[in-house]
Design a binder for these strands. Structure first.
Lengths: 103, 103
DNA sequence: ATCGTAGTATGATGGTTATCGTACAAGTAA
DNA sequence: TTACTTGTACGATAACCATCATACTACGAT
């Protein structure tokens, strides 16, 4: 069956403040982050019930992943999404908490 | 001589996280914020030596002011710019510090 | 093998943004 | 008044971004 499909994630050093702030500046993406922070981690994209089309949803999850805000890995036909809390706190201390508290 | 020209500033309650994060997501605007935080307040726009035209500079200062990040008031032919540290800390606790530390 | 589910790729569209140049306004100083 | 300084208004342009629909892939279940 070969290796599972994989997705690119930036290391903490590779994360840019530009990308993280731009990612968090979108309200739809902040609802994703807030849900991951509030409920448990590892939720499939479909569990978010976003008020946009599937392709738009894909777009927003990718922006978050490429910025380093969330992790994504395949699990069957789904993708499990997780908040990269520790990595974010390491790279940009206090930022995630401030944004979550302000939301 | 009539009242001095004045500029609109949002109250802390009127500040939106969307607008603040979008404003801070631009690197040029973060250099403005960092300079205001590092050096003294009340610096004229021209004191920032931004690598863009005058009209682009005006645009960025306006984005920061309309988001609530900076204050601007006329002083002769200049505008004195100040960082709205207290208002930001009131409305979005920890956010400004996190962004400044990460910059 | 067939079907259904979860998400992606691609291309289009409309809106927003960063940038500039030019012309202008308001204030200060000569 | 005239000239200079500082910033604004306006219009143009190019890049970017959020959104969608359609067609597609990968996996799991029947």
């Amino acid at each position: 069956m070969g290796p599972a499909r994989s997705l690119e994630h930036p290391t903490p050093e590779q994360m840019s403040l530009d990308a993280v702030l731009s990612a968090l500046a979108d309200p739809l993406r902040r609802t994703i982050v807030a849900q991951l922070a509030g409920d448990h981690d590892d939720q499939a994209c479909i569990a978010f019930a976003l008020p946009v089309s599937k392709s738009t949803s894909t777009h927003h999850f990718r922006v978050l992943r490429e910025a380093g805000v969330i992790s994504q890995h395949y699990r069957g036909t789904s993708i499990l999404n997780g908040l990269r809390t520790e990595d974010l706190n390491l790279r940009f201390p206090g930022l995630l908490d401030a944004v979550l508290a302000a939301n």
